[in-house]
């Protein structure tokens, strides 16, 4: 196995303090290699989104270590973390969360305006890769949920991140579109050597993934063979 792009070691996350405290992540260990799709399933409130937030440098763990492409996140300042998110991490959100004012092609150009990217992918080609080139000039309100999600995926990939974090990408989609979107994610992950973690409730899409972990009460289970 190649060097993992993302490593979580003994990561715990506690929200609040004292009696009110909630343990969202409980000593989680996880390593994801480039080109690998790891699925996380589990009941609501299990800590799946928390896992993505910690892995994506949005929130610092209470304890444990997160290492991204050999760089330990602990001790990095806010500016460095923002920089890491911009250059190394791609997020795909549950409801795609596109910018209402931008056309499909501009959604892909936007992340490239945040700062210099090392080897950005060409927005037009990427739009073709996700099968949306014919709707490049459409705004989000003129697109279907599946189309929006494809653009959301393309947007996350445009800066050529090493890690892709995907939170319930199919929650708003029907069966067929869910299959298409997850297939697209898996294809892009493998073609471009991205390390992908996908949180999902949808058991029908798990066959696209390399490993499936179940999460319960903040604890990550051993991978179930698929």
């Amino acid at each position: 196995m190649t060097e993992p792009a993302l490593v979580l070691e003994e990561v715990s996350l506690v929200h609040g303090d004292g009696d009110e405290s909630i343990t969202a992540l409980d000593h989680v260990d996880l390593a994801v290699a480039p080109g690998e799709v790891v699925a996380i399933v589990g009941p609501s409130g299990a800590g799946k989104s928390s896992l993505l937030a910690v892995a994506g440098a949005l929130i610092a763990p209470t304890s444990g270590a997160v290492t991204l492409g050999g760089t330990a996140l602990a001790g990095l300042n806010r500016a460095r973390l923002t920089e890491l998110r911009r250059t190394r991490i791609g997020f795909v959100f549950q409801t795609s969360n596109l910018i209402p004012a931008l056309t499909a092609i501009d959604q892909l150009r936007l992340p490239l305006t945040f700062g210099k990217a090392e080897a950005p992918r060409d927005p037009q080609e990427l739009l073709e890769a996700v099968g949306m080139a014919h709707k490049a000039k459409r705004r989000p309100d003129q697109l279907s949920g599946g189309e929006r999600q494809r653009i959301g995926i393309a947007r996350a990939l445009v800066t050529r991140p090493s890690v892709l974090l995907v939170d319930e990408p199919t929650a708003a989609l029907d069966r067929q579109r869910s299959q298409d979107v997850v297939a697209l994610l898996a294809r892009e992950t493998r073609a471009h050597g991205v390390a992908t973690i996908m949180v999902t409730h949808d058991h029908d899409v798990l066959h696209h993934c390399d490993r499936v972990h179940e999460m319960i009460d903040g604890k990550l289970g051993v991978p179930a063979p698929r």
């Binding site: 923002t82 920089e83 911009r86 250059t87 997020f91 969360n97 910018i99 992340p111 700062g115």
Partner: peptide, 16 residues
């Protein structure tokens, strides 16, 4: 707000 938080997650600086 929602889109701003998305952009921040994507690595846009406050200054931007």
């Amino acid at each position: 707000r929602p889109e701003i938080s998305v952009m921040r997650a994507m690595g846009a600086k406050t200054a931007y």
